[in-house]
C-alpha cells in the first residue's frame, strides 16, 4: 500500500538573525512498507519526525531524498497527487483546526465536493460515513457544540467520504479526554477490522500502540524498532532510553521479572497481565 525507499527529508528554514539558510534533517533513510489491511502504529517522542513522515504518505510533503509510493504511485508525480490524497486520507491532531464548514454534514461533504462527485452520491456518502462513525444524530450540529471525541469522529467521517483505502491518523487522541480517546480508538479499530481499511496510527499513548498489528518506533528521523507490539515492547530498556514509556502492565511485568518473578515478557493488556498474575499466584496459593 505505502512504500518508502530511502526516504529523507530536510527542512530548510532561514536563520532568525543572519538570514542564512539552516538545514534540519528530519527524516533519514526511511525504508518502510505498509501492507494492505494492516494496522500500524508509529511511536516516537515529540520532534522525532512522526508528523513529517505522515505528511509524506499523502503528498503534503515531498521527499528531499528517496521515494515514496502510495499504491504504486510516486508522490512526486504531479498527475497522481489527487489520486494519492484520495487513497490515503489523513486525520490531524487538533479537531478544531481541521474543520472547514459550520455544520457537520457540510464538513463531511467537503472532500467529495472537492473531488467533483455527483451531488446525489455525495449525499449518500455523507449519510453512510456519519452512520459509520455513529454521528448521524449530529448531522445538523455546529462543530463547536460537539465534544472532542465527537469532533474527531466527524473528522474521520470527513476523510472516509473520499472512499480511501488507507487512513493516516496523526495523534488523533492527543487532545481528547479518556472518554473521547476510547470512542476514537474504537472507531479506528472497527474501520480496520470490519471495513478492511489500512490504518497508520501515530500516537504517543503506548496502550493505543499495543492494539496495532505492528509497531514502528522512530527516533530522530530513523526507524529504531519495528515489529509486533509484543516484540517491540519486550525492549523495555531501549524504549525507555528513547524517552518513551511501555504500557503500564508491561512495565509492571518487567519490574516483577527484575525481582526474580517468572512472568512472561509478552504482557501488553490488563487482561493478559491479570491472566499471567493469576497463573503465578494460582500456582503458589494452592
Amino acid at each position: 500500500m505505502i512504500k518508502t525507499k530511502n526516504l529523507s527529508f530536510v527542512y530548510r528554514k532561514t536563520d532568525e538573525d543572519g538570514g542564512t539558510a539552516v538545514e534540519e534533517e528530519v527524516l533519514r533513510e526511511i525504508n518502510l512498507t505498509i501492507e494492505k489491511g494492516s494496522f500500524t502504529a508509529i511511536l516516537g517522542h515529540n520532534g522525532s519526525g512522526k508528523s513529517t513522515l505522515a505528511k509524506h504518505f499523502n503528498a503534503i510533503l515531498l521527499p528531499t531524498g528517496g521515494k515514496v509510493y502510495v499504491k504504486g504511485m510516486d508522490t512526486t508525480d504531479k498527475d497522481s497527487v489527487f489520486n494519492i490524497r484520495q487513497s490515503a486520507g489523513m486525520v490531524f491532531q487538533n479537531p478544531d483546526n481541521q474543520m472547514v464548514a459550520a455544520i457537520v454534514e457540510d464538513e463531511v461533504a467537503f472532500a467529495p465536493e472537492n473531488l467533483g462527485v455527483e451531488p446525489k452520491e455525495i449525499r449518500r456518502r455523507v449519510d453512510e460515513c456519519l452512520e459509520t462513525v455513529n454521528m448521524t444524530k449530529y448531522a445538523q450540529s455546529a462543530p463547536s457544540n460537539l465534544s472532542g471525541g465527537q469532533k474527531q469522529r466527524v473528522a474521520i467521517a470527513a476523510v472516509l467520504a473520499m472512499n480511501p483505502e488507507i487512513l493516516i491518523l496523526d495523534e488523533p487522541t492527543a487532545m481528547l479526554d479518556p472518554k473521547g480517546r476510547s470512542e476514537v480508538i474504537k472507531t479506528i479499530k472497527m474501520l480496520n477490522r470490519e471495513k478492511g481499511i489500512t490504518v497508520v496510527l501515530i500516537t504517543h499513548y503506548m496502550d493505543e500502540a499495543a492494539l496495532a498489528d505492528r509497531t514502528v518506533v522512530i527516533d530522530d528521523g530513523e526507524i529504531v524498532l519495528d515489529g509486533t507490539p509484543k516484540d517491540v515492547f519486550r525492549n523495555v530498556e531501549k524504549i525507555k532510553s528513547l524517552g518513551l514509556d511501555v504500557p503500564q502492565v508491561t512495565e509492571l511485568a518487567y519490574e516483577l521479572r527484575k525481582k526474580g518473578i517468572d512472568i512472561s515478557e509478552d504482557v501488553l493488556t490488563v487482561d493478559e497481565c491479570f491472566a499471567e498474575l493469576l497463573k503465578i499466584l494460582g500456582g503458589g496459593a494452592t
Binding site: R85, N97, G116, P119, I122, V126
Partner: peptide, 19 residues
C-alpha cells in the same frame, strides 16, 4: 486548516461540485 484542506483534495473552485 490549509494542510487539512489540501489533504482532502481541495484545489480551488474549479470542477468542484456541491452536495
Amino acid at each position: 486548516l490549509a494542510t487539512a484542506m489540501e489533504a482532502r483534495c481541495y484545489n480551488g473552485g474549479d470542477n468542484r461540485t456541491r452536495m
